[in-house]
Amino acid sequence: MKLANDPHLYTPITMRIIAKRDLCPDVRFFQMVPAGEFKQVKIDYKPGQFMMLSAFGAGEGPFSISSPPSRKGIIEFGIRKAGKVTEKLFTLRDGDTVGLRGPFGNGFPIEKMLGKDLIIVAGGLGVVPLRSLILYALDNRESFGRIIFIYGFKNVEEMLFNEVLLEMLDSDQIELYLTADKCEVKDDKYKGRICEGQVTGIFKDLKNIDPGRTVAAVCGPPVMYKFVVDKLLEFNIGKNNIFLSLERRMKCGVGKCGHCSIDYIYTCMEGPVFSYWDVIHMRDLI
């Protein structure tokens, strides 16, 4: 966390892009490190936190961190081309610089997850922040029980991080379920490994869920939350043990610009991760 009384609260540091690759036609993965005079800056963060990323001349926006804090030094983002800032980011080459502030927000409550079974549910681009949590849990495998990961996407072409996920399918460290709304598999490597349907369709396959020792983390398009939460509640998982990572418009990250306000809270300060119990009490959260 930055110092509360920081004259440079709104001043980004400079980061250099060291590598990038396309995860699908409109989502690109960026790896970056602090550049020049900022080389010594240590960016400490939690899975589920976000940062304010600036593209030269185009502006600034909030982006979930995709790298796990257990792999230090390099900050990673998975970014969909969807507006002015991201269009500019997509023109950048290795060695180019961007501005970065943060991290901001609360992140996932790791302390509540230690020793517990995890059910992680991602829809579409929601896999980006959850990748941070999953890799963190795998890097600290002995600190967690079962790790169940359900990932849904529109079609196989839009499946992000596909290579590492295919490896995970063969791993005994994680129980992975992949599902596509429309599953037309051309490539042999996907055959029989991706279900057709939505993430909610997977829950009937989950066996021996112990609600007393299960914590869930969910991130996806707004429409997904209610249906996934209903499924989790069917397992009797506590409302205070279901965590949703939400998206809102943000222009500051520090509870001042107002855009992410919901009732009396600011998503950038109290969120972006909320328990379902919070959601019930807050108007219009999902």
């Binding site: 969909r80 969807a82 707004p222 809102r248 418009r249 306000s261 108007r283 219009d284």
Partner: peptide, 29 residues
């Protein structure tokens, strides 16, 4: 005001936006 990249708007209607303002003025603080 509440629109995110990609076009999803969390407060599409004028009634929703007025409600946010009056929540802030009369209750939220």
């Amino acid at each position: 005001y509440s629109m995110v990249a990609g076009g999803h708007n969390f407060r599409k209607t004028r009634a929703e936006r007025l409600k946010l303002w009056y929540t802030h003025k009369l209750k939220a603080f």
